[in-house]
Design a binder for these strands. Structure first.
Lengths: 106, 106
DNA sequence: GCAACGTGATACTTTTTGGTATCACGATAA
DNA sequence: TTATCGTGATACCAAAAAGTATCACGTTGC
């Protein structure tokens, strides 16, 4: 796992994978359970889970013949770290940004 | 510009585009000036700038025959907003996350 | 043991993306 | 005007990504 920042950003670039992150934030799920929420094959969902795993955003735990996928919030650290870089440049604008977030939809 | 969240995340998925963001954080630059920092053609850089513009992360201002590309920090709002979602689920872990950021490389 | 189930992995197709090459066009400067 | 410069736009190519279909394998339960 060389470039965790790149893998994490890449993992978050796909809307399906971001939806999976939200799903897993509520409960850890097996691949089949995750697949049930999307209109695509289990194999496709599995691929997305692999990308998320490569990005360090989820961890996978084997339980019998099932694989429990669960969120790893620390995986977001490289992303937040990168964004943090811009805080130093616009501390003032960041305040506006934070308030803008409050009224942001989705 | 329907899905700004998607466009912003997609724009940040490429390492060259993230580097461009850092570049522009110091100074607003023309396309040619940005291109000088990368080992690729001006046309390729222009494409990246278009993607960044679509993502709302930069703004472009015409000045004579030049186009000044400058950062739009508010474009990061949808990204931060999405990440904010996870704060509600792990307020405690977020503290660890913030401290982890401090010692993060790159 | 045996059948059903969840998963891993591979091969394959289609679409998107990153990149180059090229040309046309407005702005600049002599 | 004329030549040059920065850019926009298009066509094109190669590689990566998203998705499907399929099969093999270990686990579960009878």
């Amino acid at each position: 796992m060389p470039d965790q920042t790149q893998n994490a950003f890449r993992a978050l670039a796909d809307p399906t994978r971001r939806d999976i992150m939200r799903l897993l934030s509520a409960n850890a799920l097996t691949i089949a359970e995750v697949s049930a929420h999307f209109d695509m094959t289990r194999a496709a969902v599995k691929k997305h889970l692999t990308v998320l795993n490569d990005g360090g955003l989820i961890t996978v735990e084997a339980r019998g013949r099932e694989r429990i996928n669960q969120i790893n919030p620390l995986g977001l650290a490289p992303v937040l770290s990168w964004l943090e870089f811009f805080d130093h440049f616009w501390d003032d604008r960041l305040a506006d940004l934070k308030t803008a977030i409050e009224k942001d939809i989705q």
